[in-house]
Write a protein that binds this DNA or RNA. Structure first.
Lengths: 222, 222
DNA sequence: CTGCTACACATTGTCAACAATATGATTGAT
DNA sequence: ATCAATCATATTGTTGACAATGTGTAGCAG
């Protein structure tokens, strides 16, 4: 009911698509919740036409499920599905590292190190609780995928899979742990990239994600 | 203008989404072609509302690009993008093989062998020209991804990436070659699955796709 | 002939109304 | 009191109309 301001996008459907997606990703629209057309159209100050287009686009992105004659609801991942995505991430980010290693310049490494240094500061100041969470960890992974130079891979990982995983984190309110260990692994990966050792970088990244996956499994079983 | 029959789907938007997607994949709507709303709405006998919803969903699936105030057009892949997808396929189908190897039953292997036997017949009868094309090759890869048991992986590969690659094949009218070699590689992969050797199956599948990728590169450079 | 402007047309974007379907509550019978 | 049927209500599905934008053509000045 707050009638948000119309963002820069040219069509209402595009604008609302982005706003709803943001609302889903940051937990404002929690997983499993129903997407009510009359309510949202009032909230965003548009009619149902463009709103439905936005919902259909979200359906294409697999962020909502549309059931005929019953409306749309935000997708909800169970732990099994989250683990499946981790397996995919392991393969794809391993690939990203291998590709990135042969293209990484000194400047790129400097950027990666700067990111890590920045993160380390946050670890110090917040006693390590928040690292490997929200932006902190993702920035690092984003940048490496970008360095791979494979645009399709970037779109897939950063445009789809990460969104889904964030959804799961929101859902379980899981604050990823083991910051110091992750931090060390990140540095090892940059080392491998710096020496253009693609195989090693791939191995380390796979192991890094596999560890995160193990942590998740433990959290589930407990 | 043929006013096709309404398929089983419950809403018009869903039905038309599937029909247009099929039209895109089989080349009826060629890559780069404009998606004209008045024309299509007449053709399918519906109004522009549901049609636009279908288009937006296709946009979410990355099968069409929508430019504000200028309409939608079918995406067009260049060879570089196709190669990028091959790299992704290599990683993901390698993963699929590794996962499938630990779950493959004797019955599953029988199904795979039956597929291959069927394909071999087609090789004989058509002198090997059509194998590793259209359905032939894809059936095999589909089944293995399914056997992996990773639903997200199946959706990703069979619901998105394969569509995009078929788009590229339609675009370049490329009839994938090297049928006999591919056939032999397929059998080796089944052998590895049968002995539950995940590492070997992964390696063979990666090499198999890598070969196909090399073939594509040669075709591009020639 | 070239390039600009103005206009007419086609297409896209948005909306509000209507139809169809699901949801939930009330009523009545057992 | 429990269950079923019925009806009122809310939500979804679809449509046609209107507004806004883009496109191409005709005509005109230079």
């Amino acid at each position: 009911m707050d009638s948000q301001v119309q963002s820069k996008s040219s069509t209402l459907a595009d604008s609302v698509f982005e706003q709803i997606r943001a609302a889903i990703i940051n937990g404002e629209l929690p997983p499993g919740s129903k997407v009510n057309e009359p309510q949202l159209s009032k909230q965003y100050g548009i009619s149902r036409g463009p709103l439905r287009e936005a919902i259909r686009r979200l359906e294409g992105c697999k962020l909502v499920e549309v059931i005929p004659n019953a409306g749309a609801k935000v997708v909800s991942l169970n732990s099994e599905q989250a683990l499946e995505i981790y397996a995919i991430r392991e393969a794809l980010e391993g690939l990203a590292c291998r590709l990135a290693a042969v293209r990484t310049t000194a400047e790129d490494c400097a950027r990666l190190r700067a990111l890590l240094a920045n993160h380390e500061q946050q670890i110090q100041s917040e006693d390590g609780r928040r690292y490997y969470q929200k932006e902190g960890d993702l920035d690092f992974h984003y940048l490496i995928v970008q360095l791979s130079g494979n645009t399709q891979l970037f779109n897939l990982l950063c445009g789809e899979l990460y969104h889904l995983l964030r959804l799961y984190r929101v859902q379980t309110s899981s604050q990823p742990s083991r910051p110091r260990q992750a931090f060390k692994e990140h540095h090892q990966i940059v080392d491998a990239l710096e020496s253009n050792d693609g195989e090693l970088a791939e191995l380390l990244m796979k192991r890094h994600i596999s560890s995160a996956r193990e942590t998740l499994i433990n959290k589930i079983n407990q």
